[in-house]
Simulated scan of single mutants.
Amino acid sequence: MFDHNFIEKKEREVKLAGKKYDDFKEFLLCLHPAVQKEISRSNVLSLALIAEEYQVAIFITRCKNVMWDWLRMSVKGTNSEYTTANDLRKYAANCLLILHKALECRYAEITDEAISSVCKFGYGVFSGRLRLNMNLSVRLMGLSRTARTCYITAADEDVEKSECYDLFEDLPEDIKYKLLTERLILCESNNMIGVN
Rank of each mutant, 00 (worst) to 15 (best):
1 M>W: 02
2 F>W: 06
3 D>T: 13
4 H>G: 11
6 F>E: 05
8 E>P: 12
13 E>Q: 15
14 V>N: 07
15 K>V: 14
17 A>T: 14
20 K>G: 12
21 Y>P: 01
22 D>K: 10
29 L>Y: 08
30 C>M: 07
41 R>F: 00
46 S>Q: 11
48 A>T: 13
49 L>M: 13
52 E>V: 05
53 E>G: 11
54 Y>T: 08
55 Q>K: 10
59 F>M: 03
59 F>E: 05
59 F>T: 06
61 T>C: 13
69 D>H: 12
69 D>E: 15
70 W>Y: 09
71 L>Q: 01
72 R>M: 09
74 S>W: 00
75 V>W: 10
75 V>F: 09
76 K>V: 06
77 G>H: 00
78 T>M: 00
80 S>L: 08
81 E>D: 11
84 T>E: 03
88 L>Q: 01
91 Y>C: 00
95 C>G: 04
95 C>S: 10
96 L>R: 09
97 L>Q: 12
98 I>R: 03
101 K>D: 14
103 L>M: 09
104 E>F: 05
107 Y>M: 10
111 T>R: 01
111 T>I: 05
115 I>W: 08
118 V>I: 09
122 G>K: 05
124 G>H: 02
124 G>D: 01
127 S>P: 03
129 R>N: 06
130 L>K: 03
131 R>P: 04
132 L>F: 11
134 M>C: 13
134 M>V: 15
138 V>G: 05
140 L>N: 04
141 M>E: 15
143 L>G: 07
144 S>M: 12
146 T>S: 14
147 A>C: 13
150 C>D: 03
153 T>E: 12
154 A>W: 03
155 A>V: 04
155 A>R: 13
158 D>E: 15
162 S>H: 05
168 F>W: 10
170 D>Y: 04
171 L>K: 02
172 P>L: 08
172 P>V: 02
174 D>G: 10
175 I>V: 12
177 Y>F: 14
177 Y>A: 15
179 L>M: 06
181 T>C: 03
184 L>E: 02
186 L>I: 02
190 N>Q: 08
190 N>R: 13
193 I>C: 00
196 N>E: 12
